[in-house]
Write a protein that binds this DNA or RNA. Structure first.
Lengths: 222, 222
DNA sequence: GCATTAATTAATGCATGCGCAAATAAATGC
DNA sequence: GCATTTATTTGCGCATGCATTAATTAATGC
């Protein structure tokens, strides 16, 4: 008996996501349902359902007769995404500070900060990116708003997709961890205003760095 | 020949949305795919696809073997939603002010405000709700961030769903239009800080009113 | 040779049916 | 009578096939 594990739809969602992230399914490219179906070795039905889901997540677009198009991300798109992240994450930071979490709750956040330090010391880009993700995810979780979590996760996905390219265009942001520490401390001390504002500026800064970088390299899309 | 209009999936999405909003499909109720299928007089396939879409919009939940559950909205959910709206709309207001729109661009906004005045004068709840929706939608549009538009639209949907109940629990918010005017003026004059802060407080106020109202009426969900 | 129309091809939307697993009911052992 | 096992039902996941319609190519008129 083969396996009864995850459904084909779930596999399709995962597989397609992975291939979009890896660039295997390139941004801007079109793909017929049948093409994806026999790529994933299943019938069109679960592929269609997976594609519907991914469309809802903003990763691709359904264009009847033309196939599904993997959505490219323009610099403008990135600016939009960063603005959403800025607003929602800084709100989460504010809330996290108000909820007076104990050190136990903040353990993961602290760990992420330490890991980023280590990654910077070791000059390990991937490790840094991973820890940075964890910091932001955890921050949002501490904010306690499940809808914000979901939206931020979706937007972060897009950023991650772009980061494959952008991460190697610049040095490690060694100063960025100062902000993380400030936010962490503010949350710990219940200083909501500082948590909010610091994180806001942190994100705004990241946005301007990125937009500038994209401009400099004349990247029209990712 | 019957009609070749909108696809069955689209019809299913529309129909189901309408029935959820009208309460015909009650919050918290479960429904089998086959039940919905012959309710809408089509096969399960398009219904499944529609349901997938609506799940992505947070209106229902798929629970294999138990049917699709129409998601109830608790007071906590409403609080979450209002926080998202507060952050993203006030950002949009800020941006709208920075983009120096001319009076032409702001025409719809102005009209919505006038319509709310008229509705208050005429004590017309539905007209007020409609104009209020248009104000917020238009405000966000003027902010120029398509992702924020999409997210706000989704969240507003949920609020609208709840409003069917809540609108009749309280008098018309006659003072609310003062805020709208202030925001409008700030946008017109390019005063981003005022636009942002005024709208933020406007939304926060709306949130506390609603939460209080739900508490008073002991509503566990909508 | 170009434009308009007809014929062909191809991709999708959707209905249908079947196998499987979960939920429910029945049966059996103790 | 209760618990555990076995039978039955039921709802879903998915493959398959067909009709519809858009896209493409061929054909025809001028």
């Amino acid at each position: 008996m083969p396996d009864k594990g995850p459904s084909n739809v779930q596999r399709a969602v995962q597989e397609l996501r992975a291939r979009i992230f890896s660039g295997d399914l390139a941004a801007g490219s079109d793909h017929l349902e049948s093409e994806l179906a026999n790529l994933l070795e299943m019938s069109r039905t679960p592929v269609r359902e997976a594609v519907l889901t991914l469309e809802g997540q903003g990763l691709l677009e359904l264009r009847p007769r033309k196939g599904v198009r993997i959505l490219p991300l323009s610099p403008d798109d990135m600016a939009e995404i960063y603005d959403v992240l800025t607003e929602l994450e800084s709100h989460a930071a504010e809330r996290a500070a108000q909820l007076d979490h104990d050190d136990d709750d903040l353990a993961d956040l602290a760990r992420a900060i330490r890991d980023m330090d280590a990654a910077i010391t070791g000059n390990d880009l991937d490790a840094w990116a991973d820890a940075d993700d964890r910091f932001h995810t955890e921050l949002v979780r501490l904010g306690g708003n499940s809808r914000i979590e979901a939206i931020v996760a979706m937007m972060s996905d897009q950023v991650r997709r772009a980061r494959t390219t952008t991460l190697f265009m610049r040095p490690l942001p060694t100063k960025s961890n100062e902000d993380h520490r400030t936010v962490y401390q503010a949350i710990r001390e219940g200083d909501a205003a500082t948590a909010r504002e610091t994180h806001r500026q942190h994100r705004q800064h990241a946005k301007s760095i990125l937009v500038e970088l994209l401009g400099k390299h004349r990247l029209r899309f990712l």
